[in-house]
Design a protein around this nucleic acid. Structure first.
Lengths: 140, 140
DNA sequence: CTAAGGTCCGTACCCAGGTACAGAGTCAAG
DNA sequence: CTTGACTCTGTACCTGGGTACGGACCTTAG
């Protein structure tokens, strides 16, 4: 008979699928970023395959400049009976505003870089730091 | 006579204008993120007003998920006679690709958040973590 | 001239986010 | 039943990005 594992990944298989180390998974669990997995076998963690998606989300969100605390907040957002909708809406709106602000800044950075590339093609010298203005805000 | 400062900010005035502490400015200088300022007066640093813009750029870029090393690379991009255009173009294109990738991910995150807010308004329960899919990449 | 407050440099310390053992227990292929 | 790979918990350690002194020196309002 083939190895007939019931569904469930060991921690090392999950680590391999999500591109992180075993220690990182346990670290994320301590930090509350990952649900505590079931432990059917004498204390050994068993993960559903979707867990990998969650870990990849954490990694990418972190690359995008969110702290682990903020990532945890994003992952906790959901609509359910147990939590007040108004509260969830407030939190989601705040995150959305944060995200759109980041997009705007990155877009201006992209424009600056494009301009730089054009200037290069035309051999137009630029001032030092031609993308410096990209992140200037009126309010700040 | 009014205090007739010749142009040039002391480090503490620059710090106040850019929203960081004095120590942070010296730290950024050590890391090569800030030009070494002139020191006309017995070793005291004197900054041009534009220095504040550079510091604000560093702060915001860091919030957007760039390491200080990457920020330094962004700040070093320029078109001039001294550096090979092809090389600059290559580096700028790589940064641009990075930035557009971030924008795309954040946009999907924004969509996820918007969907969540709509679901809230309609009182539609969502699965746990409805924005989990936002950062799934085909390649990764 | 003098005293309060800036500035200098260097080193030490701090927090977030991991990463790496150590020592003990567990599982499973042969 | 063994043996080698895996897992467990806990603690120690590491890097990036600052922050906070200590002790000496400078500058400027009064």
């Amino acid at each position: 008979m083939e190895t007939n594992h019931p569904p469930g990944l060991t921690i090392s298989r999950l680590a391999a699928r999500s591109g992180v180390g075993v220690e990182t998974i346990r670290f994320y669990e301590r930090k509350g970023l990952l649900e505590r997995p079931v432990r059917p076998s004498r204390g050994y963690r068993k993960y559903p395959p979707e867990a990998a998606k969650r870990i990849r989300f954490v990694r990418r969100a972190k690359e995008l400049g969110f702290t682990l605390q903020e990532v945890a907040e994003l992952l906790d957002l959901r609509v359910d009976a147990a939590s007040a909708c108004a509260d969830m809406r407030t939190r989601a709106s705040a995150k959305l505003e944060d995200v759109t602000g980041r997009i705007a800044d990155l877009q201006r950075m992209a424009e600056g870089l494009s301009g730089l590339i054009s200037a290069c093609d035309l051999s137009v010298p630029t001032t030092p730091c031609p993308i410096l203005d990209a992140l200037e805000r009126p309010d700040a």
